[in-house]
């Protein structure tokens, strides 16, 4: 049994500051973390391994410092890690990213057949959720996105059953393995790293694969392989609003303020239940 978890190292966006003069992200001092949804994907993979035996491989595409994210995954119980890293992969959009991850998963599958790919439902830096569907479509494997629970996972029968957060409700889906499943924070509570795993992680060296190892088409990677480009980044202009009308500075009786407010709102036609113009405003 072999599960691959794709993880992304991302800047902690809650810490991101914008330079108001240049409209650029101030990267200095922003900590890098494992994309939050991916920590749930790792946990789910480790739980499945504990039940079914086998191996969990974590996979990431990114610069060399993403090794830190892979080591963190090892400390949570993953067995092996692979980093796809190459200058040529820089500035990849979701199509170019899914191409590299697809090639790496195919290679891992040749080494030891993959039963399941687990991914986060979205990355907090790009917020797209497009990479896993890209990977699944390229592999020709079924994709089950926004899964909140894996009900049954049977590598022998090559069958999986999940609950998916669909538009307007919960879908109960059955599919065949191998499949690509994406998860978010609803699915589990990730564990803390154990001491032996932390020790192993500290020494762990992931394999590093570049475009040659993966035998990739140069026109499909990095910037060249990305159909989308960011043409500009800008600060949204604030909608021009008339200055605020202060009905109270904390100095009026609440009932008088409420009456004043409702008269104005009724005169503005805010409520279906009131005639306009309001009798009180006449």
């Amino acid at each position: 049994m072999h599960i691959v978890v794709t993880i992304k190292q991302v800047p902690d966006t809650s810490e991101v500051r914008i330079d108001p003069k240049t409209n650029t992200m101030v990267r200095g001092g922003v900590p890098s973390i494992v994309n939050p949804d991916d920590t749930h994907a790792i946990e789910e993979a480790v739980r499945l391994k504990e039940r079914h035996g086998g191996r969990v491989t974590v996979l990431s595409m990114g610069p060399p410092q993403a090794i830190a994210a892979l080591r963190e995954a090892i400390s949570y119980g993953a067995d092996e890690a692979v980093l796809c890293s190459d200058r040529g992969f820089a500035a990849a959009d979701t199509l170019a990213t899914s191409y590299v991850l697809w090639a790496a998963i195919r290679k891992l599958d040749e080494e030891e057949p993959v039963d399941l790919v687990l991914a986060g439902k979205q990355a907090i830096d790009g917020d797209t959720g497009q990479v896993p569907p890209g990977v699944a479509t390229r592999l020709g494997w079924p994709q089950l996105t926004y899964v909140r629970r894996i009900l049954e996972f049977d590598p022998q029968a090559r069958r999986i059953r999940v609950e998916r957060l669909a538009d307007g409700g919960i879908e109960l889906l059955e599919s065949r393995l191998p499949a690509v499943v994406t998860v978010g924070r609803e699915i589990n509570e990730p564990r803390y790293a154990s001491l032996p795993n932390m020790l192993r992680a500290a020494r762990y060296q992931p394999r590093i694969w570049d475009r040659k190892t993966l035998n990739l088409d140069e026109t499909k990677i990095g910037l060249r392989g990305s159909p989308t480009i960011v043409s500009k980044v800008w600060a949204p202009p604030r909608r021009q609003r008339p200055p605020v009308i202060m009905l109270s500075h904390g100095d009026r009786d609440p009932d008088a303020v409420a009456a004043d407010l409702l008269d104005r709102l009724i005169a503005d036609g805010a409520f279906d239940w009131a005639p306009t113009p309001a009798p009180a405003a006449r």
Partner: peptide, 15 residues
């Protein structure tokens, strides 16, 4: 998102 991600990959276009 689930659908568009698959369609863009089949069509090999930007999303």
């Amino acid at each position: 998102r689930d659908l568009a991600g698959a369609v863009a990959t089949i069509l090999q276009t930007g999303l």
